[in-house]
C-alpha cells in the first residue's frame, strides 16, 4: 500500500429489483468485483491522492435500476459524488458505452435490450482528452470497427463531461445562493 497516496475502496451493491426479473445476486459476483476494481484504479489516477496521504476514501455504489450502461453510470456517479464530497481531482472522469449495430454503425449509450444482443464497449476518460483511462469490451467486434467505436465513445464521454460540469456548477450556484440568504 502506498502511504503517500489516498487509498480508495469501492463497494458496489446491486439491488435484486434492479432488473426486470427479480434475482438475488451473490455478493462475490466476479463481474461486479471486476467493475469495482476498475473504478478504483481509474479514480486512483484521477484524484490528487498526495494531498490526502494515509487516508481511505470509501465509495459505495448502490444500483437501483439497470437499463444498460451499468459500468459507465457507476463511473459517472462516482465522479460526481467525489466532486460533491470535495475530493480534489484533476478533472471529471466521464464514461460512456457504445454498441455496434449490424457490425457497421456505432450506437451510443445502448439500453439493456441493445446491450444483450450487440457487442458494446465502455470507455472512461479523464477530462476532455483523447486519452483512455479505462476501456472494457467483452464481446466480439471486428478489428476494423474498433476505431470508429472508440471515437464515438470518446466524444460521448466529452459531451457527458460538459453535462456534468453544467450540473455541478448549477448545484454549486444553488448552494451559494442558499447560504447567502
Amino acid at each position: 500500500m502506498n502511504l503517500d497516496s489516498t487509498f480508495l475502496s469501492v463497494n458496489i451493491s446491486v439491488s435484486p429489483f434492479s432488473t426486470v426479473d427479480r434475482k438475488k445476486r451473490p455478493r462475490n459476483d466476479r463481474r461486479i468485483q471486476e467493475c469495482a476494481m476498475s473504478i478504483q484504479r481509474t479514480f486512483q489516477e484521477a484524484i490528487m491522492g498526495h494531498l490526502h496521504s494515509r487516508t481511505e476514501i470509501v465509495i459505495s455504489l448502490h444500483v437501483l435500476a439497470q437499463d444498460g450502461g451499468f459500468f459507465a453510470a457507476c463511473i459517472n456517479a462516482t465522479s460526481l459524488a467525489l466532486i460533491d464530497a470535495g475530493v480534489p481531482m484533476y478533472d471529471y472522469v466521464s464514461a460512456c458505452s457504445t454498441a455496434l449495430y449490424d457490425s457497421i454503425s456505432p450506437l451510443l449509450d445502448p439500453n439493456n435490450a441493445e446491450e444483450s444482443d450487440l457487442p458494446f464497449l465502455t470507455v472512461a476518460t479523464i477530462g476532455k482528452t483523447e486519452k483512455v483511462s479505462m476501456l472494457l469490451l467483452e464481446s466480439k467486434v471486428p478489428l476494423d470497427r474498433l476505431e470508429s467505436l472508440i471515437a464515438v465513445t470518446i466524444s460521448g464521454c466529452h459531451s457527458l463531461r460538459d453535462q456534468m460540469d453544467r450540473q455541478v456548477r448549477k448545484h454549486g450556484h444553488l448552494r451559494i445562493t442558499k447560504r447567502s440568504e
Partner: peptide, 12 residues
Amino acid sequence: DICQIAKPGGYS
C-alpha cells in the same frame, strides 16, 4: 475479431 479488451483503469 477482437474478442475482448480490458484496460482496468490506471495510467491513461
